[in-house]
Structure formats: structure tokens, C-alpha cells
Amino acid sequence: MDKINLLLIVTIISLFISLFLAFFLLTVKTKHKTSNSLFAFFLIITAIDFSTPLVELITNGPSTLGMLRNTSAFLQIPAFYLYVLSVCYSDFRLKPKYILHLLPFLLVNIILLPRFYLVDAAAKLNFIVHRQSMIEIPTFHILFHIQILVYFVAVFMLLKRAKKLYLENYAGTNINSYNWLFQFTVVLCILYSITLFKNIFKFSEYSDLFEWMKIGIIAFQLFIACWYLFKALNHPGLFRNIDSNLKLVSDIILEEKNNSALAANEKEYNEELIKLKQFMAEEKPFLNPSLTIQDVSAAIKVPVRDVSLLINHKLEQHFYDFVNTYRIEHAMAILNDPSKSKVTILEILYEVGFNSKSSFNTAFKKHTGNTPTSYRKLL
């Protein structure tokens, strides 16, 4: 089987899987409709982009639709950025201002208007034949490289902030969502880096290498789509989000006019801290796997802002770690109880407020230096 046939086979399989997943995301009943629609759009645009080998079999020469298919690549990363934004924040809504993400796509097509879109078929063919000498094509590639860089930096910054907000305000195990989104973004970043690197060989003497890299990239895209589908189906609770109105503690502190304002409240903070610790010890709210800082604030009648400063600033702990400390202490008490020696580790982790074995093991080892199993053996 030559590389042309292999490329066509891989392209057809990838198209089918990507479009099937997009159809599934658009039709499945879920409250996360916006996120699903954005990722479905990303998959469809990506599928259109890598369908080139198939399209070349059924088209004769350059066309307006063909060029639009090529420039649609400028819609991929903006769609992915908006998808990540929608997953990170529960109050995400599509707003008119997001139309700005269309600017690179529109700009490229406006640049192509005079010498491609508004000319006849012969002129279009001449444009493609002499594309290396056309200023539009280098502009196209430069803008695409800049867009890729800017958007991936923006996505990584978004994930960093969202994860920190989660740690400061939530104590559930959905932190795995941000870890997975980070991994997914890294993999996509690698894919786009390879795609950009591939173009170096397009007009070189290594054209065969260029063709083989195209096959590898399409296969990689197939892997990414299947990976996403596997995660979504096996971990339906993974894609949950937070309130975008929450502020980082570092931002709250910056809002204070000076440090003396914080110092003036030292006595009040100490009283609230005693109240907080008493509530945690007596009421055991940490047994709730979905506990949030808002829940604690409402229970002890202390503003969320003050509770956040108490834990994340005064105690120098994320709310996530603060709550997990109580959970681990409770788990240790169960493990130390001879009458509960037959209670399994899995039963214990659910009892103390965890709903993930990996999260429980990580938190337990961070607190004690041992895994739960090893700790029990040492008793």
C-alpha cells in the first residue's frame, strides 16, 4: 500500500470518528450544551482542515470554497479557547464580544479578496501555481503562527488561574478536570507544533517526508478525538466548572489599600479563625465531597471574602488542602481504630469525603508520607 492510499484511508477514518463525535456532542442531552457545541465546532473545523487529500480527489483546480476551507484553520484555536473557557467557568455564556475571535479569519480572507476571490478561474490557478511569490501566502502563515502562539499562551494562563481559583474555593475532586484539560492542551500544542514544522518540508527536496508527516498528523488527530471520547464517556463528572466572579486571594489583598487595613482586623480574624476551626471539628462539613467555601461561609456566618483570607492567606493553605487535612485526619482516626480494621480503604475514602482513590492516596501521602495501605500496615 503506497502512502497516497494510506493517507486517504487514515483521512476517511479520522473524518468519520471526528464527525461522529461532533454529532454525539451536539445531540446528547446534557446541561453542558454550550461546551459540547463549542468542542463539536472545533472538531468539525479540524475535520474540514485535514480533509484535503479527500477533497483533492473530487475537485478540479482551485476554488473559492477550497480557499475558505484552508482559511477555516484560523477558527480552530479560537473555538478551542472558548471551549476551555466554557469548561472552566459555570456562568460562561456566548456573548457578542466573542465575535472578535473571528478577526484573524476575516482579515486573511479580506487580504485574499483582490487577487483570489474576486478573479476568474484562470487567475485563481495562476495564484496557486505562483503561491510562493505571492505576499498573501507568507502573510497567511505568519498570522497563523502568531495566532497559535497567542491562543495557547492564553489557554495555559486561563487554566492556571482557574485551577488556583478551584483550590482556593472548592474541596471536591473535580480538580482532575483542570489537570486533564492541561494535558489535553499540551497534546494539542504538540500537534500544532508538528503541523507547523511539517510545512518546512512542503516545498523542499524532502517532499516524501512531508507526505508521511501528513499521515502521522491525521492519525494523531484521530487519537486525540478518541482520547476525548474515552474520557468523556468514562468520567462524565469530569467536566464541571467554577464561578468566574470569584477572585484570587492575591487579587483581594491587592484591593486592600494598605497592609494596615489587614492588621487592623487581626483580632477579628483570630476570632473568626477559632469559629472556623470549631465548626470544622464539631460539624465535620468536610464529609461532604462537594464542599465549597461558600457553604462554610454560610454556615459560620462569615463573609466569603473573610473566610478566603483566613484560609488562603492567614493559614497559607488552599481551601482544597485545608479541607483535605481534616479528611485525612478523620481517615487516620478510622485506620487507628481496632474495631474498624476490616473497613476497606475504598470505604474509608468515601466515608471521609473523597470520591476518587487517586485523590485520596495523593492527599494521604502528602499529609502522612505514606499511602493509606502502608499506613495501616505500620499500625
Rank of each mutant, 00 (worst) to 15 (best):
K202I: 08
N288C: 09
S359V: 07
K31E: 12
L181Y: 01
I137W: 01
L315G: 04
V307Y: 05
I190F: 15
F203S: 11
K340A: 08
R69I: 03
K29M: 05
V55H: 08
L107R: 01
A331M: 05
V28N: 11
A263C: 12
Y81N: 00
L233P: 08
W227L: 13
R69K: 15
C226M: 15
V55P: 05
Y89L: 05
G66S: 03
A47Y: 04
I217Q: 09
F152W: 06
Y320M: 03
E316D: 15
Y206L: 15
I146S: 08
L57R: 14
F360M: 03
R305G: 06
K342C: 09
L103I: 15
S193I: 12
S63P: 01
V186G: 09
F286K: 01
L188T: 07
G369I: 01
Y81A: 04
D306V: 10
D2M: 07
V84A: 08
P138N: 03
Y206D: 11
A171Y: 01
S359G: 05
I77V: 15
E282W: 08
G216E: 07
N179V: 06
M1L: 13
N312D: 00
F74C: 04
L335C: 03
V84F: 01
K301P: 00
L248E: 05
I4F: 14
L8Q: 08
K340M: 11
A331T: 01
K267D: 13
S356T: 05
I9F: 12
P114S: 04
I328K: 00
A264M: 13
D251S: 13
L273P: 05
A219N: 02
V84M: 11
F140C: 00
I12R: 01
I200Q: 12
G216M: 11
K277D: 11
